[in-house]
Amino acid sequence: MYEWDFSILWGYRWLLLQGLGITVGFTAATICIGLTIGLTAAICLLSRLRILRALSLGFIEIFRCTPVLVQLIWCYYALPMVAGIEMTPMTASLLALSCYGGAFFAEIIRGGIVSIDMGQSEAASALGMTPSLAMRRIILPQALHRMLPALMNQSILMFKNTSLVSVLAVPDLVYQGQMAAHDSFRPLETYTAVAVVYFCHPVPVDALCP
């Protein structure tokens, strides 16, 4: 029978806390950048110009249909070769996760925009609004309200996806957990604690969002 002993974790509290900081920071950053990318891609997708639509669709399909782990590794090892730029693991992870999230956000935002009744944009044009003003003042505020649950869902997924950056040795919660496990020879306790921390994280946010 295995003897559980969670007290050993106390010695690694700063390490784990540091990891949690990185994880939370990564989540916030990828969600913000992802939303920006997603909004841009969604608006391009609804544009009248075929070239913008094609570019946006290409981007979305590439990032939606490949595993995020592959994207991470590719961004870190292959992209610097192709583009001839140096990238830290941090930058590469941030890029891959943001684009991955952005592709999904784009589809959510596009869906939200087209779900708004045509009459709303017609009423806005009839009042003399330009399409961009109508989008900002009339369409997006209403669409945002409808998109909120789906955006929330995607954000939770993005939070969990940050755990993958540990493969590039970015010291997030999982990576630091691994360190602690190797050091203490207590993987069961460490990973249990890591899992509990992950679980507790989105729950309060979830409760705030009806």
Binding site: G119, E122, A123, S125, A126, L127, G128, M129, T130
Partner: peptide, 12 residues
């Protein structure tokens, strides 16, 4: 077009 419409009104 927008300027033109801003000078008219419409009830849908």
């Amino acid at each position: 077009l927008a300027a033109f419409r801003s000078r008219t009104g419409m009830v849908f």
